[in-house]
Design a binder for these strands. Structure first.
Length: 256
DNA sequence: ATGGTGGCCCGGCCA
């Protein structure tokens, strides 16, 4: 089963590229983030014609997450399964072909001294609670999306340039470590220990061509999924050409 | 590095 995650930065603006990418890569399950549209505007029929069932948790102008699947899609659930429902559309869960998948769009945080950063940390705590509520570490589970966290220094182009900013701070990295302690593994990093593999580059300053990127889009998997992951890739080519998202897809191939 | 792009929807917010 081929499972992918992609922050598309507006599904409306990105639809031609998303459809072309699906035809090219043929994912079985595709997790989307930042659709930036209402549920009514979500092109479910277009995906249906391509053989995918879908579930969308939209908000409109901002955020919005979705799951597409051609191996079945049941028990779709928007928002957190426990605690206070989040006010924003950032997480959706479903069962797809025997694997439970969660599409997440973690808050950006903006700045360490910003109120939004505290929201990010609280949101990550809620994510940990959500995961523990919907699954156990022995289940087949994939939690993937835009985490807005670079797990380690190797995941950014220059730590000096990012000193004191979000995405690399210790408190958010500790939240990620808590997910690992529960039983989720960063399978892409395990399979690709080298430096310089990024999933996001700023639109500004020619960051992509300068290699100024970060690996902030993650596919976290439980042990049984990790053992079955044949290969994984960050599809850097998706950042090239006309009207790219600033993020690229992350793909894992899981034997079933 | 800190706003030079790009998305939302039409001046400013957000990433």
């Amino acid at each position: 089963m081929r499972i992918a995650t992609w922050n598309v930065n507006s599904l409306k603006a990105r639809l031609p590229r998303v459809l072309a990418w699906i035809n090219d890569v043929q994912p079985d399950v595709l997790l989307l983030q930042e659709t930036k549209m209402t549920d009514k505007a979500f092109p479910a029929l277009t995906f249906s014609e391509m053989g995918y069932e879908s579930a969308h948790f939209g908000q409109g102008q901002w955020n919005g997450v979705a799951i597409l699947s051609n191996v079945g899609l049941t028990e779709a659930r928007s928002n957190f399964a426990t605690g206070e429902p989040d006010a924003e559309a950032r997480i959706i869960t479903a069962n797809c072909g025997g694997i439970k998948v969660v599409s997440v769009y973690v808050p950006n945080g903006r700045a360490l001294d910003h109120e939004h950063y505290q929201y990010k940390l609280r949101w990550l705590d809620q994510l940990a609670a959500h995961v523990a509520t919907i699954a156990s570490p022995t289940d087949a589970l994939v939690v993937a999306g835009d985490f807005n966290i670079a797990p380690a220094d190797i995941d950014v182009w220059d730590m000096k340039a990012l000193a004191g900013s979000t995405h690399v701070s210790q408190p958010e990295r500790e939240r990620l470590a808590a997910l690992h302690a529960w039983g989720l593994r960063d399978i892409v990093r395990e399979q690709h220990p080298e430096a310089g593999i990024y999933s996001w580059w700023d639109y500004r300053n020619g960051s992509f061509h300068r290699g100024w990127g970060m690996r902030i889009d993650l596919a976290l998997v439980t042990e049984c999924v990790a053992q079955q992951t044949r290969w994984s890739v960050i599809d850097r080519n998706a950042r090239k050409g006309e009207q790219p998202s600033d993020h690229v897809p992350v793909v894992i191939e899981v034997a079933t």
